[in-house]
C-alpha cells in the first residue's frame, strides 16, 4: 500500500438525484477534498445512501454533475442489510472479492495476493476464519469481514454506508481504527453515520443532508444546534403533491 497516492477528490455541481420524480438529493454543490474524512449525516430518507451510490457510479444524476479529480479507485461498503448473508461462500473468498478490479473474472489468485487476503482477515480480528462460511458469522463479524475486503481492495476513495450499525462497541472501535488508518494514508473516506457523538469525536468534516445540503464543512460548525433542527424539519416536510422544482438544473 503506497504512501503517496494520487489526489482523489470528488466535486458535486448542483447535483440532483431522484427516485421516480421525487428528489432524494436536491441541488447539492460542494467538494470532498482529497484525503478528507467526511461524515454524511441526516435523518432517515435524507438521501444519504442514494448520494453514496451515486458517488460509486450506481445511480445516475437526474441533473448536475459528479466530477472526480484524478483517476481514483473507488470502493463501496454497502449496508449490511443489502447483503445475502446466507450465501454459501467462505470468508476468505469474500475477502478475495476485493481483488476483482485487478484479477477480473478469470485470472488466478497469485500466492502473494492470497497472503495479503489472509493478512487482511487477521487485521480485522478474524484470523483463522478463512474457511468458515459467511452464514456462521454474527453481524459484527460480517462487518469486520467486509472491512477486510476493503483492505484488500486498496482503493483511493472509500464509501462506507452505515459501517458501525448493528455492531458492538468493541467492533466499532476496531473498525474505526481502520478508518483512521485509511485517513492517515491519505485516502478519501466518506461515511454515512448516525452516531453524532462519534462523528463529533472522529470525523473532521461533515455533510449534513436532508435532501438539500443543510451544512457542509468542519464538523463543529456543520452540526450546530440550528443546523440539526433545520435538518429535522426538512425531513418531516414530505409533500405528496409537490410542485415542480423551478431551481435551475
Amino acid at each position: 500500500m503506497s504512501a503517496d497516492r494520487s489526489p482523489a477528490g470528488i466535486r458535486l455541481e448542483n447535483l440532483t438525484l431522484t427516485h421516480g420524480r421525487h428528489p432524494a438529493v436536491h441541488h447539492v454543490s460542494g467538494r470532498f477534498a482529497p484525503g478528507s474524512l467526511t461524515a454524511v449525516v441526516g435523518p432517515n430518507g435524507a438521501g444519504k445512501t442514494t448520494l453514496l451510490r451515486a458517488l460509486a457510479g450506481l445511480h445516475k444524476p437526474e441533473s448536475g454533475r459528479i466530477m472526480h479529480e484524478g483517476t481514483a479507485r473507488i470502493a463501496l461498503l454497502p449496508q449490511l442489510a443489502a447483503l445475502d448473508r446466507g450465501f454459501p461462500i467462505a470468508c476468505l473468498d469474500v475477502v478475495m472479492q476485493g481483488l476483482w478490479p485487478r484479477l477480473g473474472a478469470f485470472r488466478g489468485v497469485p500466492a502473494e495476493e492470497r497472503r495479503r487476503s489472509e493478512q487482511a482477515l487477521e487485521a480485522v480480528g478474524l484470523g483463522g476464519f478463512g474457511k468458515r462460511p459467511v452464514g456462521s458469522l454474527s453481524a459484527g463479524q460480517t462487518q469486520r469481514l467486509l472491512f477486510a475486503r476493503l483492505l484488500v481492495q486498496d482503493a483511493d476513495i472509500l464509501l462506507l454506508d452505515e459501517p458501525f450499525n448493528a455492531v458492538d462497541a468493541k467492533t466499532s472501535a476496531d473498525l474505526l481504527r481502520l478508518v483512521r488508518d485509511w485517513h492517515g494514508e491519505g485516502r478519501t473516506v466518506i461515511a454515512v453515520l448516525h452516531d453524532l457523538d462519534l462523528v463529533a469525536r472522529d470525523f473532521p468534516e461533515t455533510l449534513l443532508i436532508a435532501r438539500d445540503a443543510i451544512a457542509w464543512g468542519p464538523t463543529v460548525q456543520a452540526l450546530s444546534a440550528t443546523n440539526r433542527l433545520k435538518a429535522r424539519m426538512m425531513a418531516e416536510a414530505w409533500v405528496e403533491e409537490a410542485e415542480h422544482c423551478h431551481r435551475a438544473a
Binding site: 457510479g57 463501496l76 476483482w100
Partner: peptide, 11 residues
C-alpha cells in the same frame, strides 16, 4: 448473488 451493490461498484 452475494453482494450486488459491491459487484456493480467494482465494475
Amino acid at each position: 448473488c452475494f453482494d450486488p451493490s459491491f459487484a456493480a461498484a467494482a465494475g
